[in-house]
Each structure stands twice: as C-alpha cells, then as structure tokens.
Computed example of a mutant assay.
Amino acid sequence: MVATIGITFLGTASAQPSSTRNHSSLALRLDGDVWLFDCGEATQHQVQKSNVKMGKIQKIFITHTHGDHIFGLLPILASRLNGAGGMAEGADDPRAQNLVSNMATAEPIEIYGPYGTRAYVRTGLKYTHTHLGSPYVVHELRTAHDPPEDSCTLPLDPAEQPGRDLAAGADGTWRDVFASDALAVSAAPIWHSVPCVGYAVAERPVPGKMVPALYVPHLKRTGTPMSVLRQLQLGERVQLADGTVLEGPARRPGRKVVILGDTYDPSPIAALAEDADLLVHEATNAHLPGIDPDTKATDTYEIVEERAKSRGHSTPQMAGAFAKRIGAKRLVLNHFSARYAGNDDVNEEARNVMVAIRHLAEEQYGDGREVLCARDLMTIDVEPRK
C-alpha cells in the first residue's frame, strides 16, 4: 500500500516555454520516491524550485521523443547520477573506479520510453563527453512497426545496464511494464504526430475498512492477543482457539493515475484508463472569443479543434469528453499553448483565460466533476478511495 500519492507539475507548456510555463514534465510522488513523466528542457531547474528532491528520483517515463518532452533528460541524469564532463577513462581514475563499484551495488535509474529513447540517451552522453557516476537502464516500449534491432549502433555507455525491449500485447498495449507489491504501470499508444504513449499507474487493492468491534469480542472470549487485529486488517483469515474463523475485511480497489502525452485521440488507452482517480490530459489549444485577445475573428470552435487535431493536439472539450468516457473522477488539463500564461494565481487576465478553458472542458465532462488547469509547481494529492 502506498501512503501518499501526489503530483507536482514541473512544466506545463507546449512546444515553446514562456516566462510562466516551463517545458513538459511532472513528478509523481509515491511516499518517498519520485517518478518523472517527461523531461523537457530545464526540468532540473524546476526540480530545484519544487518540493521534489533530486535524490529521490527513481524512474523516468517518456511519452514521446519530441524535444519539449525529452531535452531535459540528459541534464537530469547528469545531476541525479553525479555526472562529470571530460572525465578520464583510465581504469586508475578514482571516479571510474567509483562507477565500477556503483555498477555492481547501486540500483539503476530506470527509464521507460518509445523506440529511440535508448539511442537518444546513449548518443547524447557519448558526444557531450558526459560520464555518469551511477547506473541507468532504458526499457523501450516497442510496437510491431518498430525495427527489431536497437536504434543505436553505439555500444552501451559505461554507466548503462542492458534494458528490456517490451513488446506490445495482442491489444496493442503494454501491461505491467513495471510491477511491485504496491503498484503496477501499464502503457498504451495514443495518437499524436509521432509515436506517443500514455501511462496508467495503478495502486494494488488496499485493505478494507476495519471495524474492530466486529472482532474484539471474539478475541477477548478466546484470549487471543489483540495483535491479531493487524492480520485481519490486511485481509487475512484467522482461526481462533475454539475453531472460530474470522475473515478480515475485503480489499478495496487502489488508486489510479493516468498521465497522457501529446494526443489528438487517446482512445487506445481507454480500457487501461477506465475509472481513473486522476486523468492528466493535454489541452493545447482553445477558442476563447472575447477572452483571449489573440483569438482570430474567423475562428470557430470547430476550426480550432480541426487545427489542433492536424498538429496532433487536443482542445479542452476533447479532454473533457475523454475524461467522461473513461469515468475519471478528476481531470487536470495540461500542456498549454505559450499564449496562455501560467500565472493565473496572481494575474487576473491569465485567470480569466484559464477559467474559460476549464469551463470548456466542464461542458463535456459534466456531472460537477472537478477540472483543474495545471500551472508550474502546482501540487495535487490523490486521496485514498473510500
């Protein structure tokens, strides 16, 4: 069971950053650990401004290899893994010896991404003469259209451990690309202008609500230690000395967080995303007549939607419709055009724009469900299910 699940948005811009929005990245906080989703330029600067600790980053999930989602990956690795530039490669160099020791003992940073992610990292480290002090590994999510061989002809970086090539299942998705006793991560392709994936992070079923009054009389009657309540809380079955069998409460579904990359149609992930507690969906473009001064007089909602789709992106209405389709409990809009300022907490004009964008999503989402517009360094907690 994970005690705390939360998200910190490190960058919420699309394509170009602005003075109020950094390139795409968000941090999923899982108790003490941090998983990054996308790593746009200057992500490490945003980490330093946030509640995210660099040393806690354990995994990095890349949705696609457009620069605004990956240009910050190498700097993050260099900072997180004690990298150095121009380090001598001789075996007698102390830092080289330290890497040898860490390769045998340290847990690697795990990177997940589509075909080409491994080549990007390996080539970038090679030609920037960056030498990492601890290991990393890249697992690639492969489709039937990807070449079977590695996309990089360079040998493994000295800090690189061999990664897995993860083949999609018969339904085109990647189930349990990571799995532990507490969490499982699955992925699916989503439609964009280049190969792109979305991720579903699902908490395992958690213990049900404990009602001690149902059990304590039986424990007292048979002289059973009260410590047995701990076993029952975990959903276990306990047989008492007189033969009475007590059943712990049935386990409840865990939380689910769905994080999408850029998309004009995320339909392939719908089954994995169903009943999400929190959906993060892009809303790059919106039609805001009378609110956004840059709105074209000839535009309509339909024209803006078609323009967004032609570039592989979504409008707030499209995000709201998908959130409704999968039964998401909360929707967070993300990946905004540079024309939409991210300082709506202090600027009235920006606030009016983001309120209008939120309302467009709510029109499709409906039922009074919560819609939020992400801004840089915003933090959201995902509460346990009742």
Rank of each mutant, 00 (worst) to 15 (best):
G67N: 07
L372K: 13
E383R: 14
L278P: 01
N22S: 09
N98F: 14
G113Y: 00
I70V: 10
K59A: 01
T117M: 03
R29G: 02
Q317I: 04
N285A: 11
G6I: 00
R204K: 15
F322M: 05
D367K: 15
G124Y: 03
T263P: 00
T153C: 03
A168L: 01
G368F: 09
V201W: 03
I357E: 05
V216G: 10
E247V: 07
H23E: 14
E306Q: 15
G290R: 03
D242K: 08
D93W: 06
R230D: 14
H192Y: 04
A319T: 13
A159N: 09
L279F: 03
A276F: 04
G72C: 08
A159T: 09
S337I: 11
E236V: 00
P266F: 04
W191I: 05
T20M: 13
L360I: 06
H131Y: 11
Q46G: 07
D242T: 06
L30P: 06
A338T: 10
A321Y: 04
D292K: 15
R118K: 10
A202S: 11
T4P: 15
G368K: 10
T315A: 12
G85V: 01
Q97T: 10
R252I: 14
P155W: 05
H23D: 12
R221Q: 11
K324I: 12
G67K: 08
D38L: 00
E383P: 13
L141N: 03
R255E: 04
E370I: 11
M354W: 13
V353T: 10
L372A: 14
D265C: 09
T224H: 00
P217M: 08
A374T: 07
A13C: 12
P147G: 04
I111N: 00
D92E: 13
T117S: 03
G72A: 06
T65L: 15
F37H: 02
V304M: 07
L288Y: 11
A319Y: 00
E348W: 09
A167P: 02
T153N: 06
I326Q: 10
R175G: 04
P108A: 02
G368M: 07
A42W: 07
S101Y: 02
E274P: 14
H218S: 05
